[in-house]
Simulated assay, not measured.
Amino acid sequence: MPNRSAWLALVSACALTVGAAPAPSPATYSEQDFDRLPKFDAHFHANRYDPGALATARRDRFELLSINVDYPDFPPLPEQAAIAERMRGDDSIHFQFTTAFSMDGFGTPGWSERTIRTIDAAVAKGAVAVKVWKNIGMIASDSAGKRVFLDDPRFDPVMKHLEERGIPLIAHQGEPKNCWLPLDQMTTDNDREYFREHPEYYMYLHPNEPSYEQLMSARDRFVARHPRLAFDGAHMASLEWSVDELARFFDRYPNAVVDLAARLSNLQVQSNADLPKVRAFFIKYQDRIMYGTDLTDSPPDPHARAQNPPATDDFPGQEDRVWRADWRYLATPLSQHVDAINADAKGLGLPREVINKIYWANAHRFFRLTPPSKV
């Protein structure tokens, strides 16, 4: 038997071990945490009925918001709506959708009333928001042939209806600022590829069209005129090139949030230059940012033009790869190679409480889904 002093020391050490407080949880999540935490992709496009995509979302613990949009490269709006309603019927927990309206007939008598009826019918079938697209400002004209911008007062009856019913608006206005630059001056390869394949939207080729600044000013006037409207600026509100500019937007318009869809590479350019600044931006505005990808599930088409993210014959595999790569960048401090910027990018390693909001709670609150539970 050990001597008395040695025995007392052993007992004391055991007591300290048993009574010690548990070690604090890590400040950030790991890559392995991806598989156990609930997440929400607030910018997704289901352009075909695809149970496999939904199965991958369930496995990866993602809820999806499929955004219907009046985009010529997508199926017609009624077809998008039918697909979304069918997939939500399969799984109303993991799949939500938005509606959209056509600009056909804008400026003619009865347009507002017809549009409101279209929105209300879609909401009755489960739509949780309305999407307006970049055709407003860049393409659409009224019945007199005049270009229509989002701050046009003829939208006011529709927007007043959304305000009264508490229906959020998702607005894709303008394009990345790269759109107004020569190809060799663009900051990311994904923008370069997209605009090379979509010259009609490549504003550098169309100097007589509205400038980036004109489109952003029209959007800002619209947001200012509708302070009660729940406003989501899609694609980082087309301010992806500068977290400083996006911070100013947030400060001016407290009713606005943004999603990150298809703009992480633009952020990675900035965080490679000044990671502490980008990380501090996310922490300061943690209640105003929603995770989203712009993942687009379309029927395979060898003649389809470039999309961002790119189209693939293995969409469930692409979902998983994109989601895991984005998690690595936002949630962990780990580095990874990013093809779109032809460089490695170190992760932001955002605090757990910030990730919980960006990846789930903010979307649930903004789109008025089930009350967010503690993660």
Results as ranks from 00 to 15, higher is better:
residue 170 I to S: 02
residue 133 W to K: 05
residue 99 T to S: 07
residue 219 R to H: 14
residue 50 D to G: 14
residue 310 P to A: 13
residue 337 H to S: 05
residue 125 K to P: 15
residue 76 P to N: 06
residue 182 P to C: 11
residue 12 S to L: 08
residue 95 F to V: 06
residue 126 G to E: 01
residue 59 R to M: 09
residue 258 V to P: 14
residue 305 R to V: 00
residue 71 Y to K: 09
residue 291 Y to L: 00
residue 237 A to S: 13
residue 41 D to Y: 13
residue 69 V to Q: 04
residue 25 S to C: 13
residue 236 M to I: 08
residue 270 Q to V: 04
residue 239 L to S: 05
residue 98 T to N: 03
residue 203 M to K: 09
residue 290 M to N: 13
residue 302 P to T: 01
residue 232 D to E: 07
residue 251 D to F: 15
residue 248 R to D: 10
residue 153 P to M: 03
residue 281 F to S: 00
residue 235 H to I: 01
residue 90 D to H: 12
residue 229 L to K: 08
residue 193 E to A: 06
residue 238 S to C: 07
residue 272 N to A: 12
residue 185 Q to M: 11
residue 305 R to W: 08
residue 372 P to K: 03
residue 227 P to Y: 12
residue 251 D to T: 13
residue 215 L to H: 09
residue 334 L to I: 00
residue 299 P to Y: 00
residue 199 P to Q: 05
residue 307 Q to W: 11
residue 181 L to H: 15
residue 43 H to D: 06
residue 240 E to S: 14
residue 153 P to R: 07
residue 72 P to E: 05
residue 108 T to S: 15
residue 120 D to V: 04
residue 342 N to V: 02
residue 258 V to H: 05
residue 117 R to I: 04
residue 285 Y to N: 03
residue 185 Q to F: 15
residue 69 V to T: 12
residue 207 P to A: 15
residue 297 D to N: 08
residue 43 H to K: 06
residue 126 G to N: 04
residue 361 A to T: 11
residue 109 P to E: 00
residue 288 R to K: 03
residue 206 H to V: 04
residue 82 A to C: 01
residue 40 F to L: 00
residue 277 K to P: 10
residue 43 H to T: 09
residue 99 T to Q: 06
residue 123 V to K: 07
residue 351 P to A: 04
residue 334 L to C: 07
residue 29 Y to M: 01
residue 14 C to M: 13
residue 207 P to W: 12
residue 282 F to A: 04
residue 78 P to F: 04
residue 39 K to W: 03
residue 285 Y to S: 01
residue 279 R to I: 05
residue 38 P to M: 09
residue 17 T to F: 11
residue 151 D to W: 13
residue 325 A to K: 10
residue 221 R to I: 01
residue 65 L to W: 06
residue 61 R to T: 08
residue 234 A to L: 03
residue 28 T to A: 05
residue 359 Y to H: 07
residue 140 A to H: 13
residue 245 E to M: 11
residue 288 R to W: 02
residue 187 T to Y: 14
residue 61 R to S: 10
residue 326 D to W: 09
residue 337 H to Y: 13
residue 79 E to S: 13
residue 66 S to K: 00
residue 141 S to Y: 06
residue 269 V to F: 07
residue 29 Y to Q: 01
residue 333 P to Y: 00
residue 157 P to A: 15
residue 11 V to Y: 15
residue 305 R to C: 03
residue 230 A to T: 09
residue 41 D to H: 12
residue 44 F to Y: 04
residue 98 T to F: 06
residue 298 S to A: 10
residue 85 E to T: 10
residue 2 P to F: 14
residue 124 A to Y: 09
residue 55 A to N: 12
residue 277 K to E: 02
residue 21 A to D: 00
residue 137 G to K: 11
residue 121 A to P: 10
residue 209 E to Q: 12
residue 351 P to L: 02
residue 308 N to R: 09
